[in-house]
Design a binder for these strands. Structure first.
Lengths: 193, 193
DNA sequence: GTCTATAATAGGATAGAC
DNA sequence: GTCTATCCTATTATAGAC
């Protein structure tokens, strides 16, 4: 890919796969559907991903990991106080969900859950994504003066709670779970200061 | 079904559907696979569920709702202190996950996520399940003396966090997210006492 | 690298005998 | 209520021309 010519075919395929699997899961998303959404042909998909759907799913999760990591970094840096920053994360997740009419949830959850126990490559990619996001939260807490072990433990719960609240918000079509989660996480963080 | 003759066909089908969809999601689970697992024929499945796979998924989620509600009630009643009871919930979820080699997560999440935005009946069934579980936690907190509104808000975060931590535990094949979540939820509850 | 055609298989759903 | 056979469509993946 030369610069200035738009996205390359491979990149378009990965993005389409990531977006579609985020909404429909692994089994609910067809390779043909991905190729159409990416404006690529089936031949191109198998050219770039000879490992087929599984290899494509791994790349899609990696893309989702990057995408959400950037959002997370942005939100975490937007507030001077780390507790307020986590509230911003929760609220922004709610905005994104509502704007997509409650279909664009976590970019890895659906794919990871649907392939549990039968696609180790996909599971490892999902585990890497969770670990990365947790690492970003932990780093933000350490930068605010929290001790190493406290920051690590809080990061676990921040990511778990945001994931669960996003899931609940999606299912109930309401931002309430995320708003409540933001408030409670802020209190939990303040408690460990 | 007369008593003493074991489970009826319909019940076997619902249980098999619930268990398979819990592990593989909606699109990853075939009706033929369900009929085999339930020792029933395809004709019987469509006899009891003329609405096809969607109607079956709604019944499967209803079954999962009941199943987890009973576990939740049991664990919540096992400890005199509500904070300790929530810790027990988190730890028991971890045990269940590990015993299933990390495949039996929440009985509704996978199905609900994979059908977001395209199967309203399934979404509503999933929303009912979440609301029911939240109600059980809220009732336990009220019984321990928490004010109505405090109990309601805490119940949101308890369920969200348990869901998210179970998800993280499943993906990372480790009980750590659930153990950390239990400790943090206990502190959060104590904080509102 | 891209494209079309096709193989091989599995999916949901239905019909009708029993 | 149960069972089998079958229709129709969609799926993943491959082959080979360009």
């Amino acid at each position: 890919m030369k610069p200035g010519t738009g996205l390359g075919t491979r990149e378009r395929i990965v993005r389409a796969a990531s977006h579609l699997m985020q909404r429909q899961g692994y089994d609910g998303t067809g390779i043909k559907q991905i190729s159409v959404a990416a404006s690529a042909t089936l031949g191109s998909v198998y050219h770039f991903f000879p490992g087929g759907k599984q290899e494509l799913a791994v790349a899609a999760i990696g893309h989702g990991e990057q995408e959400f990591a950037h959002e997370l970094e942005h939100w975490l840096a937007a507030e001077a106080d780390p507790a307020a920053a986590v509230v911003a994360c929760a609220n922004n997740l709610g905005v994104g969900l509502r704007d997509s009419d409650w279909v664009d949830g976590c970019p890895v959850t659906s794919t990871a859950l649907g392939t549990a126990g039968r696609a180790p490559d996909i599971q490892e990619a999902a585990a890497r994504a969770f670990a990365r996001w947790r690492g970003l939260v932990a780093a933000r807490l350490r930068a605010a003066g929290f001790a190493e072990d406290v920051a690590t433990e809080l990061a676990y719960t921040v990511i778990s709670t945001l994931e669960g609240a996003e899931l609940a918000a999606q299912v109930e079509r309401s931002t309430t779970p995320l708003e409540v989660a933001g408030r409670h996480l802020a209190r939990l963080i303040d408690l460990h200061r």
